[in-house]
Design a protein around this nucleic acid. Structure first.
Lengths: 199, 199
DNA sequence: TGAAGTGATACCCTCTTGA
DNA sequence: TCAAGAGGGTATCACTTCA
């Protein structure tokens, strides 16, 4: 129905004929929060598809007050009190856990669900924790690689850096092609100090 | 092939000194599922960043057996039985709910959390349901627009279709630019901060 | 004490599933 | 057909560490 407006066809102005107030449903108020959404009017499609971040009122309310209805259970990490403790607990992983997570990450950038289950079981972590750890780890790697790239982003090297970044985050160990053979040099460059101690 | 192979650097052999098996942690088995991941070796970065889908053994095990530990509570929509029913229930929204959801969607493609809360309350749905509905609705619109585009994707019209698609799914009502002024097509709220710096 | 690191949360997106 | 589920991404936040 109301879709006709957004489809942009030249039909009659249906949008003028609403007999109930959309605004009343949405509680639309023109001032603060909604304006933020419009900050980036991208033009290309791909950018448009990127998730537009619409934090509620500057993302302050969210973390402390909301504790919204669909928060993850956080299987491990204790807590899970009835509904009182709004504090977010940050569990500290042990050296051993970090070490094995790093080792696994070095072997594979992404885990299948069975691998994740096995790793979680071996490390006494919830699958969600392992999943999030890998997510954050990939993000960290990406930032590192981008920082490296910025450090030497001159002339022709740039594109090369992009390619390197892409390779370093491929789902599996990325093969480096040489004329006649293939090296699986997964880490080497990207993870210089990865195994030293553990950060 | 724990990691020494993948590391492959010529440096001091730290990587040779692992005394536990990564494979044993990951349950790495070289044959079936892992090979699938390598099917698409993209080269450009943007494609690499796309989430590589790695369904477990063809996405069969995942849905049926897993019922993983971090499923969303699904506030409304009944069920929430102790832990027995693995059946996936699909709730059917009422005509009234659909109508108002569509109306809201026509007004805005994305909801802020307070708008979502208000709409959910008004429609007796959980916020998650409203969120998911909007998500699926955006996806549906995208598919429709892409289908339309494919129908007439010839010569110069293509790029135009992409732009149209982008505009139709902007987080807010999309502005139509004219040489000297700006018309905001479907609602006349907000947009004050459109050109404010920030982000 | 401020900056960096990192676990966790909340969105968003895509693809898939099953009633 | 379409609400959900699962998994991946980004952006933030809160809390720790550390120089």
């Amino acid at each position: 129905m109301a879709r006709s407006t957004s489809k942009g066809n030249g039909g009659a102005g249906r949008s003028a004929s609403f007999n109930f107030s959309i605004d009343s449903i949405l509680n639309l108020r023109p001032s603060e929060e909604d304006c933020r959404q419009n900050a980036d009017q991208k033009d290309t499609l791909d950018e448009v598809w990127d998730a537009p971040r619409r934090r509620e009122g500057g993302s302050r309310e969210t973390a402390l007050i909301k504790t919204s209805s669909d928060a993850r259970p956080a299987t491990s990490s204790g807590a899970s009190s009835p509904a009182a403790s709004k504090k977010k607990t940050r569990t500290i992983f042990s050296k051993r856990q970090i070490f094995q997570l790093e080792a696994a990450f070095d072997a594979k950038r992404y885990l299948s669900s069975s691998e994740r289950a096995g790793l979680a079981g071996a490390l006494q972590l919830s699958e969600t924790q392992v999943k999030i750890w890998f997510q954050n780890r990939r993000n960290k790697l990406k930032r590192q690689l981008l920082a490296d790239e910025d450090g030497r982003a001159v002339n022709g090297v740039y594109e090369d850096g992009r390619r390197l970044l892409g390779r370093c985050l491929l789902p599996v160990a990325f093969p480096v092609f040489y004329p006649d053979n293939i090296y699986f040099s997964n880490t080497d460059k990207c993870f210089g100090g990865l195994f030293d101690a553990d950060r």
